[in-house]
Nucleic acid binder design. Sequence first.
DNA 1: ACATTACATACCCATATGGGTATGCGTCAA
DNA 2: TTGACGCATACCCATATGGGTATGTAATGT
Lengths: 117, 117
Amino acid sequence: MARAATTADAFNAVAEPRRREILDLLAAGERSVGDLVEAMGVVQPLVSKHLRVLREVGLVEVREDGRQRFYRLNGEPLRAIHDWVSKYETTWSKRFDALDDVLAELKEAETGHGDGD
Amino acid sequence: MARAATTADAFNAVAEPRRREILDLLAAGERSVGDLVEAMGVVQPLVSKHLRVLREVGLVEVREDGRQRFYRLNGEPLRAIHDWVSKYETTWSKRFDALDDVLAELKEAETGHGDGD
DNA sequence: ACATTACATACCCATATGGGTATGCGTCAA
DNA sequence: TTGACGCATACCCATATGGGTATGTAATGT
């Protein structure tokens, strides 16, 4: 074992800048591979490979039309990321100081460091 | 070139399940490395390495106390992920059908496919 | 000073990638 | 049918890991 197949979930799919770029491009609507290639300025096989990863995690869907393939976004898999990250929203938003305090207390209780004053 | 240094941003740091696990554990409050090792059931060097990655992207901070090091969460870097993913919230939430429609129109305009009915 | 504890690093390995080139395959045009 | 086009795959490479073991280092204990 080495990397435990990173190309298995949305977290990994999105970890790649190029892949995020593709999703950003598809956000405006479906595009053909060639269109993406042109927009991204990289060789076609590269785009195809990234698209494959995105396809495997369900982030994009294909529509065949003649010899072209139009990819379109399906953000659903991003939901898991959103949900996970949202849990931490409190840590960067000062508005949640109160909650942060609660978490701190939970930690005290768990580690048993509670120096009951 | 091969992978363009994945360990450079929060997206990649969080792509690793173990690293997410660590952050989840730290969510309740700071913990020593040994504590994390025990909680995760993996060898210490592994945890240290993951902690290093998290440190390099600023997701955790250290506090030294004697020969122990207490790591604590700093979710701020997750904000970038949250912001990026949030853009796609419309794609999995039916509540935003209207906005979705707007995006579709924008795409029409951009690709020039607008077949005026 | 010596042993032990708590971590971080140095290495070693196997493997998963990202990037690129060559190639295969299906589709549309002559 | 032959040829160009559009895209996916097969390969080849270099490298970045994740996992594990051995080892170095600082701090506490005896």
